[in-house]
């Protein structure tokens, strides 16, 4: 497969003024030349293939935006090489722009006062899209979303969801090779989120567009990305398949049981005692299960089981033999908690 995006040892430094506190400090800042250097992005490298959807994740201030700005040609890296679609983005921005699309959630790029269709027509001219290609693209759009409702409304009168939808369509209109989506589902309701995910998926499949997606919503990641790149404090923590990362944390699942009916039966002290008791017994019976961990949440007892060590069904059987179970649930480890574990340093 062709590598469309390649970043090699890319770094970006910023110079910021050291601000002082208080009224006196502000006065002194007026004449201050005291700057410090911040490494927003520190020596990152990655390669992305045509047609991939890559989730680019990281906590706030990790360097995500800076990377995206460098990849879109807005920022010039302090050092390192970025080559995208055979070009260096920040050089010759105009030509490069022809082959990318960009969407910022909550920041529309369409003409505020115009109906979306008029914005589209202007964009068509701006990107010199051929009539036939434009028509094909519009047909594809209307097969995935309800265009009629969308196109004739001025952007300023649209809801946030409709605006985001229009912005995404506008970004794909000139059939770019790469589309950057920056938190496209931020602030949207559940139904709109899934609509937008569906749209992105379809467009990616139909046009084989490479998509770089930054988001804080793991729902987006679960729905769209196979590969994720995680950045924190300017360096890449993880870059691989999303399923693989889950297995780094072992084959974990959580078994939740409820051992009583009424609140009296499930009083805190009784449960606490039960938790200690159960962990001791389980470890006695299954000596291999050293990472097994029992805890309590509200009126439930949670047993974290690594299935490489012991089968879930055995644990359940064991408990059932000892006690009467009123209710039982089983939970996968979620992408959410995996990512949280990484942010918290789980990979070190």
């Amino acid at each position: 497969m062709e590598k469309i995006i390649s970043l090699k040892n890319v770094s970006k430094e910023f110079k910021v003024l050291n601000r002082r506190e208080g009224l006196r400090g502000s006065f002194m800042d007026l004449f201050s030349r005291d700057y410090k250097i911040i490494n927003a992005v520190n020596n990152i490298s990655m390669e992305i293939e045509q047609g991939e959807i890559v989730g680019y994740l990281g906590p706030n201030g990790a360097g995500k935006s800076t990377t995206i700005k460098m990849m879109t040609g807005v920022l010039e890296p302090t050092s390192g090489d970025i080559i995208i679609d055979g070009r260096i983005p920040y050089k010759d921005r105009n030509k490069y722009a022809q082959n990318i699309g960009v969407v910022f959630g909550q920041r529309t790029q369409l003409w505020w006062a115009l109906p979306a269709i008029e914005s589209f027509k202007i964009l068509k001219d701006m990107y010199q899209v051929k009539d036939k290609d434009y028509k094909d693209m519009m047909d594809l759009f209307s097969s995935t979303v309800d265009l009629d409702k969308l196109l004739h409304k001025p952007v300023r009168q649209m809801s946030l969801g409709q605006r985001t939808l229009s912005d995404i369509l506008a970004a794909f209109l000139h059939n770019p090779k790469i589309v950057f989506l920056d938190e496209p589902t931020i602030g949207l309701d559940v139904a709109m989120k899934s609509k937008i995910r569906e749209l992105i998926k379809t467009l990616n499949k139909e046009k084989n567009t490479t998509i770089i997606l930054t988001t804080h919503d793991m729902g987006d990641v679960d729905a769209l990305c196979r590969r994720i790149v995680i950045i924190d404090k300017g360096t890449i923590l993880y870059d691989n398949d999303i399923e693989k990362i889950k297995s780094i944390f072992g084959n974990y699942r959580t078994l939740k049981v409820r051992l009583g009916k009424t609140s009296e039966e499930l009083n805190e002290e009784a449960i606490k005692k039960e938790v200690e008791d159960m962990e001791l017994k389980l470890k006695e019976v299954y000596p291999k299960a050293q990472t097994l961990h029992v805890s309590d949440v509200d009126e439930w007892i949670n047993i974290l089981v690594n299935e490489d060590e012991v089968e879930m069904i055995d644990v359940l059987n064991f408990i059932q033999r000892q006690r009467k179970i009123y209710d039982v649930r089983l939970e996968e480890i979620s992408t959410e908690s995996v990512i949280r574990k990484i942010y918290e340093g789980g990979l070190e």
Binding site: G73, K95, I100, G101, V102
Partner: peptide
């Protein structure tokens, strides 16, 4: 930070901005 939206078009940015 909204100015960034003018940076991604394949046309002259001064023109694009003023034309708005």
């Amino acid at each position: 930070g909204d100015f960034i939206k003018y940076c991604f078009r394949p046309i002259n940015i001064f023109f694009y901005y003023m034309s708005e």
